[in-house]
Every structure is written in structure tokens, then in C-alpha cells.
Design a protein around this nucleic acid. Structure first.
Lengths: 337, 337
DNA sequence: CATTAGCAGTCGTGTGTCCCGAGTGCTAAT
DNA sequence: ATTAGCACTCGGGACACACGACTGCTAATG
């Protein structure tokens, strides 16, 4: 693969990514002043096709990159575009506002990435299984109303408003919560239920039904709706690849199915940004799509991932750069200061 | 308009709502055993068309209800279907979990309604302008980290995690918050900023920049993203009316634009469920759609609305029934106990 | 030997034509 | 008032055709 072939492949991929239509030899030579005639380019393209980097939708059309072509482009030719100074600052600023509430963080991240890249984005909430209880606090708002705040050793915070049952209304709620907090400190969240059954005593035990329910809801990060955030699906309508409504339905269905996303993301283990192109994506519902994923960390441990989905013809360079920046900021936001 | 005409109009609307295709005289007579021949029905339909209740997409097709036809159906013929016992219980259960956090409430409601009705749903957050500060509390999680909880007289609660600036780290945060809370109790949220500038004294004044920012963020219910919840857009793909991608884009754009939704909903003042059919909807982007809206209350005052959008051919009866039930439950959840 | 011009060949797409069938409106019979 | 019968209308699918974009090949060129 000589220099000129590489150059042609690069230009072809980029033109196709931008234009969305098969690229012909004439276009290529005229548009990018390659200094050679279309015929020469045709010869080169024939070679590239034979080697599997290009495809021919049909005889009388221009060429399109194959998965292998994209792969070569991403691995060998792509240079990461530097992001705008102002864009980076925007990303940083958007994490400054409030930080530790998981639901907010993942929604914010999904929205941010889908806004910047114009591709749909899914963010998986951080794994919380290994987290341990670091503290439990209560704010009493009214005789029958309180806010409980749970804090983990990895720095997550969850709060819930709870109604106080009548039989507890006279008692010293703050003291009870403090006692629970002391008793259970250091217990992994997933063992909380067991630990409570075993360790609660006295007054606490008498009301353990109430406490159990409240704390379970706090610890499990409740409803699935808070375990995954999806944003930017509307942008799909801008890509001719998704003009077909049936296809749109399949892809959207996939993105909204937590188990599928989970399966796809949990098997990626590396801490770096990864790119899956076309058939490399192990999911039947999203044929002819590409996926870029990144990990984020809490401390030095990878705790979650996010994913950007687009047509195979996607702006890999920009997406990769954005994901690197965002996952970096998200990790920083999760750092336990 | 005699009984038989009414019956024909009713059946035609319902068949068209279910099938989505213009209804012919033959279909009508065969499918619903009207006891008269297609020819008779044709005559009746011709009359109904002349009176403006029906339309003819083209000469050789069946009839379709006009806006006036739907309107007559909704006002005169529609009988509200009773909802399943189990469905009602499901609705009630979904509000039992946690209650007073606005963002959660409106998202939950949007999701609930769009799941039940299979139409996209928008919920506007309650107006908060008239609410007054009822209390402010703090939970200190770490030297530099605290959760602030704001409570209004109408029962809303908002909480935010905040980083405590270094210069405040030694001081008695709880006392400061209690003092602010006392000082500002009863102040309408929209005047908080002014009131703080005027009333803060001593230590509090010295750090008023910090307090101002924190409390403003609490009171303004922050980002727009929390002022409106949208759910169920994917269900649009199931209606042939939205097969056209351009149209889909327009309608989605409308639903995602808070100002448009606001304009549409704020002008509806009644506390009951209202139906807008086709051209009755005052918005150019959503031609050929219908909208059902309902109000919800906090106490005895209407504080917000929600909206279900569908093709003109929508299941008015069911949507109305669901909105009545849901807005009732939502109002109950907002009641200040 | 690499490059290029020229030309025949291929095939998707847009356009025009035709036919079918569903459904109507009208008229005359009941 | 209702119904049967029939001519008529019109949208949509099937088919054919021409256009044009692009290729692949061959032969000429430096």
C-alpha cells in the first residue's frame, strides 16, 4: 500500500463521510487536486477494491469504503482533530454546576455528547456493586416528611424524599439514622439488606420494615430509568441512512433496551476509546452502524462506559476526540475529593 | 342529524381510528351489521360529507372524518371507556414510591402516560413563581461537600449537592443555613435574589456570592431540562401518519422546544381535559395532529399541564380517560400533606 | 513503464404509460 | 325510503424507456 493509495483511501473516506454518496474518480481528482487524471485514480481504486478496502454498490457508481477500509482509516490514517479551546471549556463548565448525583451526571453526559457530535448517545451509570456505605444522613422537613441522603465510599450520593410513617413521628429520627449509619458503615451496598436484618436492634428493629424499604430504594439506585441515559435520537433523522422507518425502529429499540446496551458495553474492558465498525458490532439489530465507546473511571477503576452510535459513515475523528475529552471530565467529576 | 347518521359517523370514526384507512360503504355495512345495504350508507355518507363531517381523499376512496367530524364525535358520541381496575392501581402505585422531587415527578408522569397511551407525551413542570420559601436545610457529608435541601410552602422539594468553598470550611454551616432559612422564610422564590442582597448580614454577607449562587440554582429549578419532560417519541414510528421523515422531524422539533409547548399550554386555562383537533391546534409545525391536554393542581390551584400528541386519528376516549386519572394522581402527589 | 485519453458498456433512477380494483354517484326498480 | 345495477373516477403498482454517472479496457503518449 503505497503513499498515493493511502492518500486516495483517506480522501475517499472523508468525502464519503461528508457527502454520503459514493465517490467517483472524477470527483476525487477534481475536488482535491491530486495532480493525476481520473483514469489513474480509477486504476488505484480498482486495486484498493481488490484488496478489500473499497466496495462497489453497483457497476456504474462510485466507490464506498468497506469495513476494512474504515478500519484502516481509523487505525492508520486518522489524525485526531484537536478540539476547540472553547468546546473543551464548555465541556468542563458543564460538569462544574453540580456533581455527585448519578442520575444527573449520566443524563448531562448523554446530552452533552449527543449535542456536540450530533449522534445518539447512551451513557451507562457507574457500576455500584462494589461501593460501600460511607454515611447516611437525614433532613427533617416536616413531622411526616424527610429527605434521606446516602453516600458511598466512592463518592456517589443519592437522596430520596420519604414520608415518615405515623408510628415514627414522635421519635428522634436523626438519632436513628445516625445509629443506622454507624452500624452499617463499610457494608457493600449489595449486602445492605442482609446486614440490616442481622444487625438492627431495638427500636430500629421494630421498624425495620420501613428502614429496609427506604434504604433499599436508596442503594439500588432504584428504577432502571436511572441506570442508563439516552439522548440525541432525533439527530438520526438527519442521516439518510436512517430514512427507513423500520430500520429506525430497530436501532431505537436497541438503544432503549438496557440489556442489549449492557451486553455490548460490559464486554468491552479496555479503558480506552474503542471503535466498532459495521459487522464488527456484535448485534443484529444495528447492522450497518458503527459504535464508538469510551470508559470512564472513578478513581483508578473503570466503572462505566458510554457509547455513540452512528451510520458506518461517521465522523470518527471528531467523535473519538470528544469521547476522550468527555470521559476524562466525567471521571474527574467522579473523583472522590 | 338523525340517529342513523350519528351511528354511521361513530362507526366510521372508530373504524378509521383503528384501521387507519379510509372507510368505504361496503366495509361499514359488512363489518358492523347495520342492517342496511351499502347503497343506503353511501347516501347517508354523502349527506354527512355535505354537512362537513366527512371528507373524501379522492373520488375513488372511502371516507375519512373531517375535523368537524372528530369534534362532533368527541363532544357528542364519545363515551369514556372505564379504565381497568389494574391499570388504575398501576397508576397509583407509580406515584407511591417517592414523591416530592419535581424532576422525578414530571419524568415519571411523562413516561407513564406515553407507556399507557402509546402516544408521545410532554409534561410541563409546575409553575413555581408563586411558591414561597418554607425552609432550607443542609446535610454535611464531608468537609468540602454538602447537600442543600430547599422546601417551598406548596410542598416542592429540591436538593443539590454543593461543594463548600475553602474559606467556609471551618465555619458552622448548619447554623448559617438555619439563619438564612429563618431570614428568608416566606419570601417568594422569584424574589429570593433581591431579598438576599437586602437582608443578609455579617458572616452571611461576607460569603453572599456563594450563597446567592447556590440558592439561585436551587430556586430556579436550574436548567431548562428539568422544566419539561418528554417521553414516548418512539411510538410515533408506529403510526403511518409519521412515516414521512420530514414530518417526524418537524413534530419532534416542536415537542422538544420548550417555548412552543409553553405557548400552547399556558394559553389553555381550564382545569379540565381539553381536546384540540387538527386545525384547532394553534401551531404550524404540527398540522394534521391532535392534542389532548390536562391540567394538574397543587392544592386547589392549577399549576401545570400535560399534553398527549397523536395523529388526528387518535384514540380520544382512552387518552382522555387516562389523562383524567393521571392528572388526578399527580395532583394528589403534589398535595401538601 | 507509469500515465492518460477515449470509448464502449453497465446499471440505478426518474419519467411516462397502462391497467387493475376499490369505491363512488346516479338511475331505475322495488 | 331502500336497494340493485352500472358507468365512471382515480390512486397505485407494473413495465418500459431514456438519461447520465461511472467504470473498465485499450491504445496512445512521454
Amino acid at each position: 500500500m503505497d503513499e498515493r493509495k493511502r492518500r486516495i483511501l483517506e480522501l475517499l473516506v472523508e468525502d464519503y463521510v461528508n457527502m454520503g454518496e459514493p465517490v467517483g474518480s472524477r470527483t476525487l481528482s477534481r475536488k482535491y487536486q491530486l495532480g493525476v487524471s481520473p483514469a489513474t485514480i480509477r486504476n488505484e481504486m480498482a486495486d484498493l477494491e481488490e484488496q478489500g478496502y473499497l466496495e462497489h454498490p453497483h457497476t456504474s457508481s462510485g466507490r464506498v469504503p468497506s469495513d476494512k477500509g474504515y478500519r484502516y482509516y481509523v487505525d492508520q490514517l486518522l489524525e485526531r482533530p484537536g478540539l476547540d479551546r472553547s468546546l473543551i471549556e464548555g465541556i468542563q463548565a458543564s460538569y462544574r454546576a453540580k456533581a455527585r448525583e448519578i442520575a444527573w451526571l449520566i443524563h448531562q453526559t448523554a446530552r452533552l455528547v449527543s449535542d456536540i457530535t450530533a449522534y445518539p448517545t447512551v451513557v451507562l451509570a457507574p457500576r455500584g456493586e462494589d461501593a460501600r456505605l460511607a454515611g447516611l444522613s437525614v433532613v427533617i422537613l416536616a413531622p411526616a416528611l424527610a429527605v434521606l441522603v446516602l453516600q458511598t465510599d466512592s463518592g456517589y450520593i443519592e437522596s430520596r424524599t420519604v414520608g415518615v410513617p405515623p408510628e415514627l413521628m414522635g421519635s428522634d429520627l436523626a438519632a436513628m439514622v445516625a445509629e443506622i449509619s454507624n452500624t452499617l458503615e463499610g457494608v457493600p451496598l449489595r449486602d445492605l439488606e442482609n446486614a440490616m436484618v442481622k444487625r438492627l436492634r431495638g427500636d430500629l428493629w421494630r421498624h425495620h420494615g420501613f428502614w429496609l424499604e427506604v434504604i433499599q430504594r436508596l442503594a439500588s439506585r432504584g428504577d432502571d430509568e436511572e441506570r442508563v441515559a439516552l439522548s440525541g435520537t432525533r439527530s438520526m433523522l438527519n442521516y439518510p441512512e436512517f430514512r427507513d422507518v423500520e430500520r429506525l425502529k430497530r436501532v431505537l429499540g436497541f438503544l432503549e433496551t438496557e440489556s442489549e446496551i449492557d451486553r455490548l458495553l460490559r464486554t468491552r474492558v479496555s479503558g480506552r476509546v474503542e471503535v466498532l465498525i459495521g459487522t464488527e458490532v456484535p448485534a443484529d439489530d444495528i447492522q450497518d452502524c458503527s459504535v464508538v465507546t469510551a470508559a470512564y473511571r472513578a478513581g483508578d477503576q473503570v466503572v462505566g462506559r458510554l457509547l455513540v452510535l452512528g451510520p458506518r459513515r461517521m465522523h470518527y475523528g471528531r467523535v473519538i476526540a470528544v469521547l476522550e475529552a468527555v470521559s476524562e471530565e466525567l471521571s474527574r467529576a467522579l473523583e472522590w475529593a
